[in-house]
């Protein structure tokens, strides 16, 4: 696209983008990419980076798959009797006055759904046994609500049950991976929104010259690009550190992603002007995708406030310890 998009030297990001664009009625892009084969080896840094690059590509292409749910389910796999490529976790969501909801992302037909019940283990349910209700957020995120009845299936409808003592550690790991994945997807969508605005600023003329020559416009875009760089740096460090990352670093990554992703889209919209707010322009799709993703696995507002409270109450230094950085395996 253009200079606002970096990471073009990342071969897996490129490959993922191509596979997603080629999908259509063709083969499942996750299978075509060999993405499922990466899941058992997420402990390997390069494998992990490749598996997560898919999400950035999802953001750029505004495509959807069951990858997020599959990633969230992966830490439960050891205790879940399901064939490879079939287990997909639901995502809990709640808001004051709206109660708790369960969501699934992507086309889960034929999949086994993992319904996590913090404090009570996790259930495995066949997706075909549930009536899924489609939601339609902007940005093409294929998301379904699992009806309340589906949350409490008959014991007989369950394919399996995972005990809490096994589910508890898996849940923590799943949340880390899931937040990281959503952060990468937010980056992909936001940087694409920025790329559109940069291209537009290069050819849209007012007062006889491209608006990208005006400093006020240039600075909006440069701030947005800085927000991309910040998010990219933090997400890359978290991806590299993985389990070496300090407590609640997944919250830092996700909170930063939501905040920066929204800011990037807002600056891009300001540069695009009114056309950016129309359905004739693609901006709203990227912007909508970012907003929808901010609502999954902890919003920026909620996580940011929670981090502040935790740091204040416990006096914890939330940063990645220097000793971890000095001994991290990716030191060149």
């Amino acid at each position: 696209m253009n200079a606002a998009l970096d990471g073009v030297d990342d071969p897996f990001l490129e490959a993922a983008g191509q596979a997603l664009r080629a999908a259509g009625d063709g083969p499942d892009p996750l299978t075509a990419l060999g993405w499922w084969d990466l899941l058992p080896d997420l402990g390997d840094r390069d494998v992990r980076a490749a598996a997560l690059a898919l999400f950035r590509a999802h953001g750029r292409e505004l495509s959807s798959s069951v990858a997020l749910g599959a990633l969230l389910a992966q830490p439960f796999r050891a205790s879940a009797p399901a064939a490879p490529g079939t287990l997909v976790a639901t995502i809990a969501s709640s808001a004051p006055g709206r109660g708790a909801r369960l969501l699934v992302v992507g086309d889960v037909r034929g999949k086994v759904l993992l319904i996590d019940r913090p404090g009570h283990g996790a259930d495995l349910v066949a997706a075909s046994d549930l009536e899924l209700r489609p939601l339609a957020p902007a940005g093409g995120l294929a998301i379904h609500e699992v009806p309340v009845g589906g949350v409490e299936p008959d014991r007989s409808a369950r394919l399996g049950v995972i005990a809490e003592r096994e589910a508890a550690p898996a849940r923590v790991r799943a949340r880390f991976l899931g937040r990281l994945a959503v952060a990468w997807e937010i980056l992909g969508a936001a940087e694409s929104a920025l790329a559109l605005a940069v291209t537009y600023a290069g050819h849209r003329e007012q007062f006889g010259r491209p608006i990208g020559t005006f400093q006020a416009v240039r600075h909006l875009l440069a701030w947005a690009r800085t927000d991309c760089a910040a998010l990219g740096s933090v997400a890359a460090l978290a991806t590299s550190l993985d389990e070496l990352a300090p407590a609640r670093y997944d919250e830092v990554v996700k909170a930063l992603a939501g905040r920066n992703g929204r800011r990037i889209c807002e600056q891009a919209l300001q540069v695009l002007g009114a056309v950016g707010f129309t359905t004739e322009h693609r901006h709203h799709a990227y912007h909508g995708r970012v907003l929808a993703l901010d609502a999954l696995l902890g919003s920026s507002a909620e996580l940011t406030h929670g981090l502040g409270a935790w740091v204040r109450e416990t006096g914890t230094d939330p940063s990645v310890p220097a000793a971890t950085l000095w001994s991290s395996p990716d030191r060149s």
Binding site: A230, A255, L256, R259, T304, L307, G308, R312, S332
Partner: peptide, 29 residues
């Protein structure tokens, strides 16, 4: 030091510090 009313602002500082730490560490490397 600090109060619940400032937790949002403190959280923002935590995010900004995390960003400069990750980016400047990459610069060091």
């Amino acid at each position: 030091f600090g109060s619940p009313a400032g937790d949002g602002a403190l959280g923002q500082a935590v995010l900004d510090l995390a960003a400069v730490r990750a980016a400047s560490y990459a610069g060091l490397r």
